[in-house]
Design a protein around this nucleic acid. Structure first.
Lengths: 342, 342
DNA sequence: TTGAAAGCGGTACCAT
DNA sequence: ATGGTACCGCTTTCAA
């Protein structure tokens, strides 16, 4: 059980010099062999000796030294969100990583929880990533973008609700989500629409445009309709409090930000004796599995994200051609999925 | 498509040499000033000039160069799971990152999706992290651990269901979860216990020990009781299929891996006309909020994870004292939370 | 076919 | 109080 530390503390890390010495060649040759440099012909016996030496020593090249010499790296840095995001989002994030690695990038997530936006940008810049891809919540300011570009980042790309000056923007207009929800509710004849706005900080980057989307749809679609923002935290107490006062609000529908908040609120409403959908329609968003499991089944807004491959290819394109003006909007399609709660 | 690079497309990245030149001092002085080196006294006017020059150029030090020179880094690498994990887990992961950064480590997540275990270890080793902290699903083999240690990692720590030779292990015995669930069910008089085993690959590292825990508790507690493993995927069809055959299985209880699977299965059972808990008790795990929202309210197993700070401090300790024999077990406390579904 | 050597961006020792 | 310089590990001309 208790292992005696072998050569633990200070076995020096093998370098290409060690490999060269063991193989009886120069460091240059080691480099040629291990990188399969095509411009140089090395005899097969030599190659074998080098490979065996590397293997025997457990040699692993030093990425920092390599990229220092090369003057660039292939690291793509993904700042990770400050807020726990939903399953929809994390699946997407996984896809993007996978696709980037398929393009031979080294993908690294950097959790900047607790750092200010510019502090964070500076920390990222120290790593000299070739690209920074900010998904979702944007921890980037125009100044941060400048710092990153100055430090050699070829691509600084944001994918989210709003654009940041200097960065390539993939604008996913979250208003479409709110609009889809509201249009659906109006069509169902609802006229007084509550909109849940999560109390959790950081989510407002999504919730505000979604609310705006509701307002837009209502302004366009229903002259006699009204919109009522409702702050709610993701916990039972907050939902219960909201539900307790429900009748006083005079609402006949609620768009609850996403499916998880919708589940929470719907339960609270039911517990308070409010009939769903009779008295009040409920719509979520994200089209999670859980919506189908609820009773009544939860109406939702299905969101169509770009695929990970598309994003990865965009990153690659911008890295190769940093001056192309890439700004695209409305990458996000949203449509209502009517089920039983509305 | 010939692009005319407008300006600054490839303005060279400022180095400490540039700062030195602009400030009219040597690179050494720049280094002293910017690092507040206490062993050396630099006059205040000089300090100011250096700082202003750095500011003006937007100078950001090159982490790779620094750690190359220093011979070590303060990077902690967190391999990210191959499987989407629950909210419980991601909260924990965030905590750990935060705590590590408070100890002045640079935390980096490395998504190794699609890499073999040893391939991944090698990729991590290239970054020369001072520590690797593998949470949850373990993508580490004894060989991978050796590679990492050889490459200079002072700490290779696994926190999960099983230990890996050579690594410091924080063994969280998942059997405790299954045992708690089973003990609870036996106590309630149940005798034929189904155990949901997720079909999703990668989750078996958790599900198998949990199943084993159920078996252990049953063997100890109920001579006349039996255990029935039930494979189920996280989708409606799979759950419906299982529920359709339910009566043929002759079970009066089910431990459904975790709350999310439990929700899915409970819904399917109810839809199939199986009364919960009358005909069949259902228990989940993780004690998520959603359990309280279901009807009947979902009984669950509450899992007590170590805090992020504890983990971070352990990492730090091992980094400073790599030879200390750190292997701890049962960091995970689990106890049943009886609600209405059992 | 292979080797010697320069240099990437910092840091720290040793002079001055 | 500062500057000169060697060196970290690796790649890549240029010579031999």
């Amino acid at each position: 059980m208790s292992q005696t530390p072998k050569h633990s503390a200070d076995a020096p890390v093998p370098t290409s010099t060690d490999v060269a010495r063991l193989a009886g060649v120069s460091r240059a040759t080691v480099s040629y062999v291990l990188n399969n440099t095509s411009a140089v012909r090395i005899s097969e016996p030599t190659r074998r000796r080098v490979r065996e030496a590397a293997e025997e020593l457990g040699y692993v090249p030093h990425a920092a030294a390599r990229s220092l010499r090369a003057g660039h790296s292939r690291m793509v840095l993904l700042p990770t969100a400050h807020v726990p995001v939903g399953p929809l989002y994390s699946r997407f994030l996984n896809e993007v990583q996978w696709a980037l690695r398929a393009l031979d990038y080294t993908v690294v997530q950097y959790g900047s929880l607790g750092l200010g936006a510019d502090e964070a940008a500076r920390a990222w810049a120290e790593l000299r990533p070739v690209a920074v891809l900010s998904l979702g919540e944007i921890g980037l300011t125009p100044h941060g973008v400048r710092v990153l570009k100055r430090s050699g980042a070829k691509a600084v790309i944001t994918l989210g609700p709003q654009r940041v000056e200097g960065a390539h923007a993939l604008v996913m207009d979250q208003r479409a989500v709110g609009s889809a929800a509201a249009a659906h509710l109006l069509e169902r004849g609802r006229r007084a629409i509550g909109v849940v706005v999560p109390a959790e900080p950081g989510l407002d980057l999504f919730s505000r445009p979604r609310l705006a989307g509701v307002r837009k749809a209502v302004a366009r679609g229903g002259a006699d309709a009204r919109v009522e923002p409702l702050t709610m935290a993701y916990d039972e107490e907050s939902a219960a409090r909201l539900a307790a006062d429900w009748r006083g609000l005079g609402l006949d529908a609620v768009y609850a930000y996403n499916d998880e908040y919708a589940q929470l609120l719907m339960r609270a409403l039911q517990d308070a004796g409010v009939d769903v959908p009779g008295e009040c329609a409920v719509v979520g968003a994200d089209d999670l599995l859980l919506g189908k499991l609820l009773r009544p089944r939860l109406s939702t807004v299905h969101i169509e994200l770009p695929t990970g491959r598309e994003i990865a290819e965009l990153v690659d394109r911008v890295v190769r051609e940093p001056d192309g003006d890439v700004e695209r909007h409305d990458l996000m399609a949203a449509h209502a999925v009517a089920r039983e709660s509305s």
